[in-house]
Design a protein around this nucleic acid. Structure first.
Lengths: 228, 228
DNA sequence: TAGATTGTTAATCGATTAACAATC
DNA sequence: TAGATTGTTAATCGATTAACAATC
C-alpha cells in the first residue's frame, strides 16, 4: 500500500479493504488456506444450528491461533460483535465473497469405483457449491449405471461435456497407472484444476494446477507430533 | 541454539544437527509438513525407478521453492551431490529418520462402506508404513465379510483390538452423524490420533489429535487462485 | 454493571528467496 | 573442461502472538 508521504488514514484503509475484496490483490497463500478452513467449520456449525461462533471456538476446530483468526477477518471489515462473537451466516457469506466462490462450480469425476462412488455420494463437495455433473469410467460394465443421480459415461464424451457444462475441475479417482493419460485428456479438454486422488506424479502444463490428495502424508505429519 | 558469547563453530553446528535428528527439538510445523510431502513424492519417484532427484524436480511436484527444499535438507546434513541431485533411496531413509516414522504403525478403520473399502484397498497408507489391521462397522450385514485381507468386526471388539495390536491411529470413514460417538470410543480405548473423513466437528480431549480431511476445502483454495 | 470477546497494536520470530561460490 | 546443481549466506517479507483498550 503506497500512499506517498502521508500516513494512511482510516479512509485509505477502508478503501484498500474494499479493493482487496472486490478485485484488488490476491490473498496470500496462507490467508486463502485458512479462510477455506474456517468456511468448512462454519458450514458444519451452521448445519448443527449454531448461530454465533467465537474466535476461540474456531480455533479449537482449526488449530489456528484465535488472534490470527480475528486478524484474518479484520483485514476485510468488522464482522464480529464484541462480547458475542461472529454471526455464522454472515461470516460464511463474507468469506465466500472474499474467496469469490459464492457460485456453483461444476466438476467432472473420473472413476466409478469405491472411491469415486464415495466422492459422488458425499455432501462434502455439495456443501461448498461444487456439483459432480459427470462421472466417467473406461470399464464398459460400469458405463450406463447410475451413481446417485448421475449416469456413468465413457471417457470419449469428456470433451463435449466439459464444454457443455463449463467444467473447471476434474477429480481423478482412478488407479495410479491410469492417471497420467486421463490428466492429459483433461488438459486437452481445457480443464484448469486437477484433483488427484491417485499416487501418480502428474505432468501438466504450467497453467494447470494439480492438487494431489495425500492422507498418508497428513498422517505421517500427525504421527510425528505424537511421537515427539 | 545458545552458545554463550562465542560464535557457533562448525563443530557446534554439526552437534546441533545430530541432536535435532536424534532427540533434540521438535521440527517446526512447516518443516514437518514439507518433509512429509517430499517423502510422498520420493516414494512415488522410487516406484517409477528414479534413482536421483533434484531440488528443482521436487519443487515441480510439491510447489515448494527449490531453495527452501535444499535448505530443509541441509539443516540435517549434506544429503545431495552437486551437479547431480539427491539419491532417492538415501533421501527417503534420511527423512524417515528425521520424522521418526521408519517403523510400521497399525491403524484401525471405521466404516466398511465405499470410502472405507477404498482406503483399505489403497496402497497410499501401506507405502508409508501404515497397516490397516482392523476394520469395524456397526452394520450387521457387513460384519464377517472381508475387505482385502481383513475381516470386518463389530465395534464392541474395539478396545481389545487396540490393546492387542498397539493401535495409535483411528480412521473414521463413517457418516457424519456417527462420527462423534465412535471418536468417544476411540479416545476411551486409548487411541491418540483420529483421522476424520466425515464432516463432523469432533470434540476430543487435548491429548488427542484430530485431523479432518477436507477435499472441498482444498478445492476452494485451488479455485481461488484459478479465479484470480 | 460484570463478563466476554472483538479489533488492533507492537514486537518477535520463522519462512522465503535471490544470489552465488563450491564442487560433482 | 563445461554444465548442472548443491549448500549457504544475507536480506526481506509475512506470520505469529501477547496484550489490552474498546465495546457488546
Amino acid at each position: 500500500m503506497k500512499t506517498g508521504e502521508r500516513v494512511p488514514t482510516a479512509v485509505d484503509l477502508a478503501a484498500s479493504r474494499d479493493e482487496a475484496i472486490a478485485s484488488g490483490e490476491r490473498l496470500s497463500l496462507g490467508v486463502a488456506a485458512r479462510l477455506s478452513r474456517y468456511l468448512q467449520v462454519l458450514t458444519q456449525a451452521k448445519k448443527m444450528g449454531k448461530e454465533t461462533i467465537s474466535s476461540r471456538e474456531l480455533s479449537d476446530y482449526t488449530h489456528v491461533n484465535p488472534t490470527q483468526i480475528r486478524r484474518d477477518f479484520s483485514g476485510f471489515g468488522k464482522f464480529g460483535k464484541r462480547g458475542v462473537g461472529y454471526n455464522v451466516d454472515a461470516l460464511v457469506s463474507q468469506i465466500r465473497k472474499i474467496l469469490r466462490t459464492s457460485g456453483q462450480h461444476n466438476i467432472a469425476l473420473f472413476g466409478a469405483g469405491h472411491l469415486g462412488q464415495a466422492i459422488a455420494s458425499s455432501d462434502i463437495f455439495a456443501d461448498h457449491g461444487f456439483r459432480v455433473v459427470a462421472i466417467f469410467d473406461t470399464d464398459k460394465r460400469k458405463i450406463g449405471q447410475t451413481v446417485g443421480p448421475t449416469k456413468v459415461r465413457h471417457a470419449t464424451e469428456l470433451r463435449a461435456v466439459v464444454e457443455e457444462e463449463d467444467i473447471v475441475v476434474g477429480v481423478l479417482a482412478v488407479p495410479t497407472a491410469a492417471a497420467q493419460s486421463i490428466a492429459d485428456d483433461l488438459v486437452e479438454a481445457g480443464v484448469k484444476i486437477i484433483f488427484n486422488y491417485s499416487e501418480a506424479l502428474l505432468q501438466v502444463p504450467p497453467e494447470v494446477t494439480v492438487h494431489t490428495s495425500s492422507p498418508a502424508v497428513d498422517l505421517l505429519y500427525a504421527l510425528y507430533f505424537y511421537l515427539t
